[in-house]
Nucleic acid binder design. Structure first.
Lengths: 346, 346
DNA sequence: TTCGCCATTGTAACCGGTTACGCTGTTGCC
DNA sequence: GGCAACAGCGTAACCGGTTACAATGGCGAA
């Protein structure tokens, strides 16, 4: 592979001039530049980005560290990030912590010297640990994580409010026995959603103590919950799953057992994965514009890179909105929710 | 940020020794190593991967260039790649050609010096162009692209055979008027699938000339096709869409018009996106293990990086397999396809 | 004609690591 | 005791670019 020195020799100029000509700096005569460009073509020279970024102290790359790459959630985040990164000519270096704390540290360390900034989504990490791993000199934006005590900008979804609103809506729809299927214990989203559920129940339906089943965001945990209900061990006329995945499993298992949704049991999820609107009946859920999580985070990071100092105060909270569909539509006498996408129940 | 020289000074040794101690090379005394490590801790030193890879001429990173990041297809590919990349401690640098040929060149050029190898998926690029862009010195594996004349290893899905088999199955199921919704004209997958359809029709159902509607892999083109059928302009008792996305749109629109699937029209897709099994009735489709496309490609690339010279002959062709579900289940008298996932119709 | 200024170009230091090579001091052996 | 072999460590060159600074030369002004 040709290097800049090769090009310079071929064009009969110095490396400095060759570099200037290639990068379009002003002070190069037209004929000189032409000679350099000819040499570039001839030798098939492509600049070595690694070397360039070493001296420029700028890589035009942002590191993205996600807990996993499984499923659509992450795919959408990456797409959102890429959308705005691409506009500013930035590249994406993907790191994957594969769920392990140890790997998180490794992933972050491996980014040193290859990225200008970091987008990190650490759903089940303690803030203290996180600050140990992060390099304070490296602009960093947290995704879907309320930094809390940490002085870091972040963008997150208001899971609490979303869950609260969904619970409210179910009760307004006439549900009397609302069961919540929770997500993984250590997962922040899951915990916030559960809190929203509990608080809404406490506020609106004091007399009924909230029932919470354990889950782990997988279809299987939804199925498990369904079996409890089917076998009659758990009276329920509405189930609010902490994510759509579980709701899907739940519905499938209920269908197998001949339980009608929403006739016998209403079901609601959280996330609005594309599958949700394709089920029949459609799944009522909290729409989170996942790609906006990524694009907003990336925009914040770009501002940091430009030198704007975002205070921790500059956190962005995205509000999910309720999409009412068929799975919560039919309690007799209850107001019938619109099936139109984007419609809000209030 | 601390550099290696800082560490060396702090530990009272030379940079060479510091480097050796940190990298665990043999010839360093235990006390010396301990001193270096103490300095590393104290200064919070993290090696600068950019600099390291410059001299090592090795980046431990592979570049992944995809036509786009939209939808699950790419997400699954990335997941497959990451799966095996992660095992070998490799990082992923994502490039996105955003559909434009010009950007493809830019994306490939930007990888120079930041990656050890390349995984490229250029669905609508001419081989000649591709070879212009690619650096022959950089190990490269093509994804989902038959390199043809190019002397490059690749991994691809046998779209032709898959489409052929699906068409066969529809006819065996009793269909008489099979319509194919094609994908984008310039897309290789789409063209191969169309060829498979045409050839199967020619072979098995000579008398019926194959009907082909244009499409672009989007749900909308499926809906458009549905409207043609509903309005009676196009007699059809079976539709084979070139991908699941279009099949989904088709089914939704047919449902709105009150056309029964599979009662009035059978429907089949291609890809087996997760949504497919969640529709009711389930969508019959050709299962492509998309993640395997990525993981297989990555494994081939790793072999190249290890120095094995794969001849172009080492291409891998993945065979899709037919998943029969509800949307092709009900022509009277026809053998009823099993709804079990993974079942083959023969 | 001579001087100074400016535009163009070259020399060389540097980014932050790795590593070939050489130096030193110990140890083993005759 | 003398010498070779060798382990541990340091010096400095290098990876492939960028860029501060100096050198050169052409031009207009005095």
């Amino acid at each position: 592979m040709a290097t800049l020195r090769d090009v310079a020799r071929e064009a009969g100029v110095s490396v400095a001039t060759a570099s200037r000509a290639i990068n379009g700096l002003g002070n190069v005569t037209a004929p000189t530049r032409a000679a350099v460009m000819a040499a570039v073509k001839k030798l098939n020279f492509v600049p070595h980005s690694g070397a360039r970024s070493l001296t420029r102290r700028k890589t035009d790359t942002v590191g993205v560290i996600l807990p996993d790459l499984f499923g659509e959630f992450f795919s959408e985040i990456i797409r959102g990030i890429d959308l705005v990164a691409h506009e500013s000519g930035m590249h994406l270096l993907l790191g994957n912590m594969h769920g392990s704390t140890h790997e998180t540290a490794a992933a972050i360390a491996a980014m040193r010297g290859r990225v200008d900034g970091l987008l990190v989504m650490p759903p089940d990490l303690k803030p203290e640990l996180l600050s140990d791993y992060l390099d304070p000199a490296l602009p960093t934006v947290l995704l879907n994580y309320d930094a809390g005590s940490l002085d870091l900008p972040f963008v997150a979804v208001d899971n609490y409010r979303g869950a609260y609103a969904m619970t409210e809506a179910l009760l307004a729809q006439g549900a009397r026995q609302v069961v919540h299927i929770a997500g993984p214990k250590h997962n922040r989203d899951a915990r916030d959603r559960q809190r929203g559920f509990v608080d809404a129940m406490a506020k609106i339906a004091k007399e009924r103590s909230p029932v919470i089943l354990p889950g782990d965001f997988s279809e299987e945990s939804g199925e498990k919950a369904a079996r409890l209900i089917v076998e009659g061990q758990l009276p329920a006329d509405a189930v609010f799953a902490a994510n759509d995945q579980m709701a899907v499993g739940l519905i499938a298992e209920l269908a197998r057992a001949g339980v009608s949704v929403p006739g016998d049991v209403m079901v609601a999820g959280f996330d609005d994965i594309p599958l949700a609107r394709h089920l029949s009946p459609g799944l009522t859920t909290m729409q989170v514009n996942i790609d906006r999580l990524g694009s907003t985070g990336m925009m914040m990071l770009l501002r940091l890179l430009r030198g704007d100092t975002l205070a921790a105060a500059s956190a962005t909270i995205l509000n999910p909105n309720l999409i009412a569909r068929g799975t919560t539509a039919s309690l007799p006498g209850a107001p019938r929710a619109s099936a139109a996408a984007g419609a809000s129940p209030t």
